[in-house]
């Protein structure tokens, strides 16, 4: 597996979000998760995708307290150690 980078992870997340019908074109770090139509089920699936594809040990509860897309990305980067 290629070395994990923030860019690689973010690209995978945005590919997943696009499949969840989230408008990733307009997504910014300041976007609210709710405003972007990212719900708790999306977070569960996203966590499983990151675990499956990159072996990142991350659980939906890790995102508790994340209100923006940037918050959520920070959680993932921290758990991935990048």
């Amino acid at each position: 597996m290629a070395d994990l980078t923030r860019e690689l992870i973010q690209a995978r997340i945005e590919r997943a979000l696009a499949a969840f019908d989230v408008d990733v074109e307009t997504l910014t770090p300041e976007s609210g998760l709710e405003d972007a139509d990212i719900d708790s089920l999306d977070i569960v699936e996203l966590s499983q995708i990151l675990e499956d594809d990159y072996k990142i040990d991350i659980k939906p509860q890790d995102f508790q307290g994340s209100t923006t897309y940037g918050d959520a990305l920070d959680v993932v980067f921290r758990r991935a150690g990048v």
């Binding site: 499949a19 969840f20 089920l41 569960v44 699936e45 499983q48 995708i49």
Partner: peptide
């Protein structure tokens, strides 16, 4: 996921 389906 290969087939663009969601799986949880």
């Amino acid at each position: 996921r290969e087939r663009s389906l969601r799986a949880v």
